[in-house]
Amino acid sequence: MSTDGDGRRPGANGPGGGERRTRRDDRAERLVVAAFTVSIVGALILAVVYIAGGQAQLEGVALALALGGIGLGIAVWARYFMAADEVVEERHALASTEEEVTAFTAAFEAGEQTLARRGLLAKLGLGALGALGLAALFPIRSLGPRPGQGLKNTAYGDGGRPLRLVDADGVPIRPADLSRSSLTTAWPEGHEHDADASTLLLQVDRERFRPLPGREDWVVGDIVAYSKLCTHTGCPVGLYQTELDLLLCPCHQSTFDVLNGAEPVFGPAARPLPQLPLDVDEEGFLVATGDFSAPVAGGFWDRGRT
C-alpha cells in the first residue's frame, strides 16, 4: 500500500462523488485482484498439501496466504474504494434525565413497600437464600482431602523402620555404586513414584565436609543424602557443580552448599535442603533411618508445627 494521496481528487469516493478512475485506482484494483487470487491459490495449496499427507510448514504458509490474501484485499479495497469522509455524530448524555430517574425510583420504591409490608417474610426469604448459599459451599469440600501431615512427612518416616534407598527401577543402592563427583537420585523402596521423596545421594570430600551438629552419624562413609526438592518452590535441584560442591535449582537459581548442610548460599531459597539420616543394613544396602530433617519442598504457614 502506498502512502500518500497524490493524484487523488478529494471526495472521489465520497457518497455521491462521481467515479473518475485514476491510475492509482487502477493500481489499487489490480492489487485487490491479486490479493484475492493469492488467497484462492493459498486455499488450493492447503487442500493439495492436506491430501498429499500434510506438512506443517506448508500448511501454515498456505493458511497464511489464504487468510492474508483476503485481509490484504479487503484492506486495500477499504482504503481506496470506500468512503473516507468524516462524519460527525452527536453524542448524547449517558445519564438519564432527572424525571426518568425520579420515575424509576418511585416505581422501585413502590414495589419495595409492597415487600416491606411483609417484613418478616422478606427477611426470612433472604435468610433462606443465604443458608442455601452456605449449603452450596459444602460440596466444594469434596474436591480434596484435608491437608494433614502429608506435607510434613515423606514415605521415609512412614513405617518407623529403616527403609532402603532404591533407584528409579527399584534396585537397592550400595555405597559402592556411588563414586566421587557422581550424582544419584534415589527413592524410598516401594515409593519410586512419590513426588515428595526423591533424594540426592552425593559422595563428598570428607576432609572438607562439615556435618551439622547432631548429624555426624547421618552419613555413610562420605555419602550424604539430601532432599532433591528446592525449599523455595519445590523444583528438583538437579544441577550438581562438582568442583564447587554446589547444588543449583534451574527454576529460580537457588544455590546450596553441599559441604555445609546444603545451606542456601545464593538465590531466593531461605532454608537448607532437608537432610536424610543414612545407614547401611546387614546386606550392605543404603537405608534411611528416619524421615528428612525437615518437611521437604516449599514452605507453608504451619510447617514448623507438629
Partner: peptide, 26 residues
Amino acid sequence: FLIGRRRHGEAEPPSEPVRPADASTG
C-alpha cells in the same frame, strides 16, 4: 497502523451531522 492510518491530505471536511433520531438510541 497501515490499515487504520488516515490517507494524508485527502480527508473530507466533516459532513453535516446525522439526524439526531439516529444518534439518540446509543
